[in-house]
Simulated scan of single mutants.
Amino acid sequence: MALLHRAELRPTKLDLLAAWLPSRRWFHGPAGADIVRVAGFRFDDPAGAVGIETMLVRAGDGSVHQVPLTYRGAPLEGADGWLVGTTDHSVLGPRWVYDGCGDPVYAAALAAAVLAGTGQAEEFFEVDGERKYREPSMTIASSGAGDAPVPAVGPPRRVVDADPALIVTDSVELVVLRCLDDGGGERAGAMLTGTWPGQPTPLPLAYAVPR
């Protein structure tokens, strides 16, 4: 379960992405165009310490990009190269926002979603002490649910910042598609797919292969 706050972020997540995305080699979009959110989903952090959100965004009439983000209350040691930026959350205070591909908590959550079909987190807002369910803006599904036990996923040993992104751990290799417009092609391993308004046919989002 993801418990969300009706809070103000300065700068906003889209502001952070507008500054960060054009610096990525895999980004396809017109220069200077506004970044808009297409859809998104969240994973649960079993420890409850890290927010994990995958955003689908587009710049102008450019491609739909998948951007996994993690939100932390303190810097992640050794992950400066994956820092998207910092923001001030009106409820939680300063937040460090990372590209999830460089965050071990995201890697573990993605492996569980692809290999065990743990699915996306249900999202709730707390309003006047009462929790209100928020309908998801997209749906994910796994082709590998129940096929094999999910190995313990340690910290990434190697991460390739490309399209697709590659996350290599001691127990699993994860592939995260960045640009979703071309479907990504067929790859080995269990597959995570997504559908959202305007995209009723499932498209590949990620793959996982135990090592």
Rank of each mutant, 00 (worst) to 15 (best):
K132N: 10
P156F: 01
E186F: 08
G102C: 06
E8C: 14
V97I: 15
A74I: 05
L92T: 03
S63A: 14
V127G: 10
T87S: 14
A188N: 11
S63R: 14
V160I: 12
L56D: 00
Q120M: 14
A190I: 04
R95D: 09
T139Q: 13
D181F: 10
S63N: 12
W20C: 04
R42D: 10
H5E: 10
G183N: 08
V153F: 03
G93L: 08
R134T: 15
L166H: 10
V64G: 00
D161V: 10
D170S: 15
I167P: 00
G194W: 01
G81N: 09
V153P: 02
V150G: 03
G117Q: 05
C179M: 13
L115C: 03
D181T: 13
L21T: 04
E123D: 15
A188V: 08
G73Q: 13
T195C: 12
T86A: 11
A112T: 11
R37W: 08
A49P: 07
T70H: 04
A165Q: 09
R25P: 05
G73E: 08
T54Q: 05
T87G: 05
A121V: 07
A145N: 04
V150D: 03
R72M: 11
V176G: 00
P136K: 02
A108V: 04
A121R: 07
K132A: 12
D45C: 13
G48K: 09
P200K: 05
A7P: 07
I35N: 03
L56N: 02
V97E: 06
R158K: 14
V67Y: 00
P46G: 06
